[in-house]
């Protein structure tokens, strides 16, 4: 069961927005998924903001700011100091502070999406930072990724397998890959998406709304 706030100690500020993480390897399509998610969530009247964790540039933040999908001031960039996993796991305080800043700037904010910098299969989000998190892999990365059982694949609340349209072109049996992903996760949810075409994005938005916004 989720707790509405990651802050459990006396004296901690009251958190109003649910915080979710989106992590995954470099190039798996995290930013593309967020670009698709934003209009879907906004159509559902979700008041949201995004924090990106770019590794060496502000590419992801700038891409979202220029997208026209969301007011630029609702996108903050946190540089990861060469350590994309540290900034979401061992030391998430810069992201926590960015979330606090967004909450202070946008009263009524309901959802903050933290996009991790591209990492490897071992990256996981600290529950100090997020209430719930998604790990994104893609078929072009190889259909053996679920079998490698990285912590991201195993521990995420939701596993997204992206770029499913590429499966026939990279020799991946998608059905088997999804079945193996579901098996290694003991049946915890797996969603297949093609972010470029928007396939599966409504299901992803449904999962977010159910898990942290308590909306059906």
């Amino acid at each position: 069961m989720l707790h509405p706030s990651p802050q459990t100690f006396a004296g901690a500020p009251k958190s109003t927005a649910a915080r979710i993480g989106i992590g995954g390897p470099v190039g798996s399509g995290k930013t593309a998924l967020i670009e698709r998610l934003i209009p879907v969530l906004r159509a559902r009247n979700v008041n949201l903001a995004v924090v990106t964790n770019d590794l060496v540039t502000k590419e992801d933040a700038e891409r979202l700011r220029r997208s026209g999908l969301i007011e630029p001031e609702r996108v903050l960039a946190v540089e990861a100091g060469a350590c994309p996993h540290t900034v979401i796991r061992e030391d998430p305080t810069l992201n926590m502070a960015a979330g606090d800043e967004l909450e202070a700037s946008f009263p009524g904010l309901e959802l903050i999406v933290f996009e991790s910098g591209g990492d490897n299969l071992a990256s996981t989000f600290s529950l100090d930072l997020v209430d719930w998190w998604i790990f994104v892999i893609d078929v072009a990365g190889g259909d053996d990724i679920p079998r490698k059982k990285g912590p991201g694949v195993l521990k995420s609340d939701l596993l997204v397998v992206n770029k499913i349209d590429l499966a026939p072109h990279v020799g991946v049996n998608l059905e088997r890959m999804l079945a193996e992903a579901s098996a290694v996760r003991n049946g915890r949810p797996v969603i297949a998406t093609n972010a470029r075409a928007g396939d599966g994005v409504e299901a992803l938005a449904d999962a977010i709304c159910r898990a942290v916004l308590f909306r059906e």
Partner: peptide, 11 residues
């Protein structure tokens, strides 16, 4: 702000 975020949460 990062240091403060941690100390606020540990009260």
């Amino acid at each position: 702000a990062g240091l403060l975020a941690a100390h606020v949460r540990i009260a």
